[in-house]
Amino acid sequence: MSLGQEIGKLLGPGDVIALFGSLGSGKTTLVKGIARGLGVDPKVVRSASFLLMQEYQGRIPIYHFDAYRLEGPEDMSRLGVDELFWGEGLSIVEWADRVEGSLPEEYVKISLFIESPDKRRIEVSCLGERYVKVLQGLMARD
């Protein structure tokens, strides 16, 4: 939650975060944190597996995608993601491994690993120069 909150504070309009991780690795929890960092009550952030896309109004709009039920990048494109990725909000994609081809060239890649029932390892990498600020911000935090 708190890591997500820091990340949320560092991101702005048109940014894209792709979350990689298996069932139960904490993707939705991380989204709750990011949303809080952008001034959204984490309570309103729920699993988007059913509706595929949910929108929250914070400091900027947050588009919360969930590709759990999708088959590939084509399904993702049909949701109209291209317009949203370049829009006024922050886009977060859960189960990004299922739709990698539909992601933009530059994005923040966050991978979650289950180390043990109460421990997660989280790797953040940034594709593209626009996200250097995110890495710098996160490193400054430590």
Binding site: S49, F50, L52, Y68, R69, L70, E71, D75, R78, L79
Partner: peptide
């Protein structure tokens, strides 16, 4: 075969 609802 998809294990869920596919929007398209």
């Amino acid at each position: 075969k998809y294990g869920g609802v596919v929007p398209e």
